[in-house]
Nucleic acid binder design. Structure first.
Length: 674
DNA sequence: ATTAGAGTAAACAGCC
DNA sequence: TGGCTGTTTACTCTAA
């Protein structure tokens, strides 16, 4: 809610791209999640697919399938990241925003992402999902390699072999290949069912075609198989013929696997648990039918049988469909078996991921039930330093066991050590007044909200600047105004640290109030109150950045999440995914408003005087600034001057507020700003 | 080495 | 007169 300040300083945070000071000797910590998503990947061709340009060699075919498997994972990743991009509405944007935030992610092959990057990008569940996808991708890859070996063996031995034998083997191979594809489809459908992968249903065609990019297009299979059998294999005709069958529905495609004696998948009619597939298939189906009014395979008016999306009016019709289309036959049996494999694979993967999660949490000394620390590093974007000396003591005290915050608040002082940060960031003795290039900084409000109790009870200096704390105190109030004494009280109430050394920090508070133009003293009915000029606050520390990716990264890290998405997506889309970014896609106006601290301000000292705003970017220098600055000197006039509100780019809501509040209205824009 | 932001200390003035 | 509030200056430290 609160505007994310530009200058909150965070202690012991991963230090963005700058690492930490040379004195501390810390290594550059891996940047936070946002920074980790900069579009650094070259990206593979997203349009990889079965070009229907004719024949493919077996090697090409396998490579092609690997590419498709890769795409599956990538698309999955894309979806996941897009969901992450909008914490508020993950569901609603799953399919629509697939090309937005995750652009940078999408540009990177999942294999190009390090596990650390993955973790930074995705939340644990999402990460697990991605890992599952990638693992399955690996699984498919292995299977394909196996097939490849098989194929090579056949080819080598093929010449002396009789035609029939070779044909059978090829047929078996093709069936195995088909099963592989089915497996992929099953998994994709499975993911789709779980909402992990959003695929456009293609109602006109069979289920196979619902995976236009992720799986081999059925229409390409004949070509592929033709190419596969191209090396003078006599079975070419049959292959081609059967491949053509695949262009039909899934039923016809899979019915191709019907010949039992040449169908390796079907030759093993025993399930992993020893049950005959046939029996389970039938019994599962019938047992499901016993459920009145619903059926596990029926939902949203369509058949949920893997690979089947037949629309059914009602349950009765579905039952009919189930009995006719998915009766006990080889196809259903094979599909069931595939489904079991999918489930098994997922279970295995789940177990692995769970184990990994446990190990990770154990390594990080976290309780499994506390997800909060995961988010801490994101909040702990390094800001410009502050409270340096105390920061040192606070940060160092924890490793020494001197001060142990509540578990829920352990993160802010002992944040998760970023992989690249190591213990150096926490080692005792190192100077902790850290400042990063992240002039935009983390949300103090969320940080405080999460660790309110900790700061309240622990005599630890908060890792924020006086300015940010003062601002926070003011913004927390409904009126966005506080007297000096109220600010004092807020400090002492919120932070145990400020219950001592009152003279020092109170002096500092006063000093900051007077020093920073962002704090505006307003003569109120009840006396003088202090308000925050949010724009001045944001303007206070212009980033020393240029238009480099670092700029984007820093912008991202400093903006609040909501605004971040738009600008981030736009920026990333613009920089790394031009195809998705039509000229009108990126709104310069919004971008500028969202990123008020563009490098244009760098080097330009805060300019309160120019009334025409010519000496500074117009959007940043509304007359309000100068007025507000003048408020300090002439509060009464300032009130009058600000009353009309900022003419441009300065949202001035609540103009209808109480007279004494009209001076404080400028804080609201700040929220919108961030 | 330079620069800038931040913290600290202190002097000073005005007001109650 | 003393305390509070507010302003200003100087200095130090840290990080860019």
């Amino acid at each position: 809610m609160m505007v994310e300040s530009a200058s909150e300083t965070i202690r012991s945070a991963p230090s963005g791209q700058n690492g930490v000071g040379s004195l501390s000797g810390q290594t550059d910590g891996s940047s936070g999640g946002a920074t980790g998503t900069t579009a650094s990947g070259t990206g593979r061709d997203m349009t990889t697919g079965a070009d229907s340009n004719g024949e493919m060699s077996p090697a090409e075919l396998l490579h092609f399938q690997q590419q498709q498997a890769l795409q599956v994972a990538r698309q999955f990743l894309l979806q996941q990241a897009s969901g992450l991009s909008s914490p508020g509405n993950n569901d609603s944007k799953q399919s629509a925003s697939a090309v937005q935030v995750p652009v940078s992610v999408a540009m990177m092959s999942p294999q190009m992402l390090t596990p650390q990057q993955m973790q930074q990008i995705l939340s644990p569940p999402q990460l697990a999902g991605v890992v599952v996808g990638i693992a399955l991708q690996e699984y498919y890859k292995k299977q394909q390699e196996q097939l490849h070996l098989q194929l090579l063996t056949q080819q080598q031995a093929g010449k002396p072999q009789p035609k029939e034998a070779l044909g059978n083997k090829q047929l078996a191979f093709q069936q195995q290949l088909l099963q592989m594809q089915q497996l992929q489809q099953q998994h994709l459908l499975n993911l789709q069912r779980q909402g992990l992968v959003s695929l456009q249903p293609n109602q006109a065609s069979g289920p196979l075609q619902t995976l236009p990019q992720a799986a081999v297009c059925p229409t390409d299979l004949p070509q592929l198989w033709k190419g596969e059998g191209a090396p003078g294999q006599p079975a070419e005709d049959s292959v081609k013929q059967e491949g053509l069958d695949l262009t039909g529905t899934a039923a016809t495609a899979t019915s191709f696997a019907a010949p039992p004696k040449v169908s390796p998948p079907l030759s093993h009619h025993t399930l992993p648990n020893g049950q005959p597939t046939v029996l389970t298939s039938r019994r599962d189906s019938s047992s499901h039918e016993e459920t009145p009014g619903s059926h596990p395979l029926y939902g949203h008016g369509e058949c949920k049988w893997p690979g089947c999306e037949t629309l059914c009016e009602d349950l009765g019709q579905f039952i009919k469909h189930l009995n006719t289309e998915h009766a006990l036959d080889d196809r259903s049996t094979a599909q069931c078996r595939v489904q079991m494999q999918v489930v098994q694979q997922l279970e295995i993967q789940l177990a692995k991921e769970s184990e990994r999660l446990q190990a990770m949490m154990a390594h990080l000394h976290m309780r499994p039930s506390e997800p909060k620390p995961f988010s801490q590093p994101l909040n702990l974007v390094p800001g410009s330093s502050s409270f340096s000396k105390v920061t040192v003591s606070a940060a160092d005290s924890f490793p020494d066991g001197l001060v142990h915050p509540p578990t829920s608040a352990a993160a802010p002082v002992t944040p998760l050590r970023p992989p690249g940060l190591g213990s150096a960031s926490l080692h005792g003795g190192g100077p902790a007044r850290r400042r990063s290039s992240d002039k935009f900084c983390s949300p103090i409000s969320s940080e405080l909200a999460q660790n309110h109790e900790f700061y309240k009870n622990a005599d630890v200096r908060p890792p924020f600047t006086y300015a940010s704390l003062i601002r926070q105190a003011i913004l927390e109030t409904p009126d966005r105004q506080l007297t000096l004494n109220e600010i004092y009280n807020w400090f002492t109430r919120m932070f145990a640290y400020f219950r001592r050394n009152t003279a020092t920090w109170k002096n500092a508070v006063r000093h900051n109030l007077s020093l920073h133009k962002c704090f505006v003293r307003v003569e109120n009915v009840k006396g003088a109150v202090w308000t925050v000029d949010e724009r001045e606050y944001q303007k206070r520390r212009p980033p020393k950045m240029t238009g480099s990716p670092t700029l984007v990264k820093n912008m991202i890290s400093g903006l609040s999440y909501g605004a971040l998405n738009a600008s981030y997506q736009a920026a990333l889309a613009e920089s790394s995914f031009p195809l998705l970014n039509s000229p009108g896609m990126l709104n310069p106006g919004s971008a500028s408003s969202l990123l008020p601290l563009s490098h244009d301000d760098v080097g330009a000292p805060v300019e309160p005087l120019p009334s025409n705003g010519s000496s500074s970017p117009p959007r940043l220098s509304p007359p309000q600034y100068s007025h507000q600055v003048q408020v300090k000197e002439e509060p009464a006039e300032a009130e009058e001057d600000r009353q009309p509100g900022p003419p441009l780019g300065t949202p001035n809501p609540s103009a209808s507020g109480p007279p004494e509040d009209r001076d404080l209205e400028e804080e609201l824009p700040g929220e919108e700003l961030s």
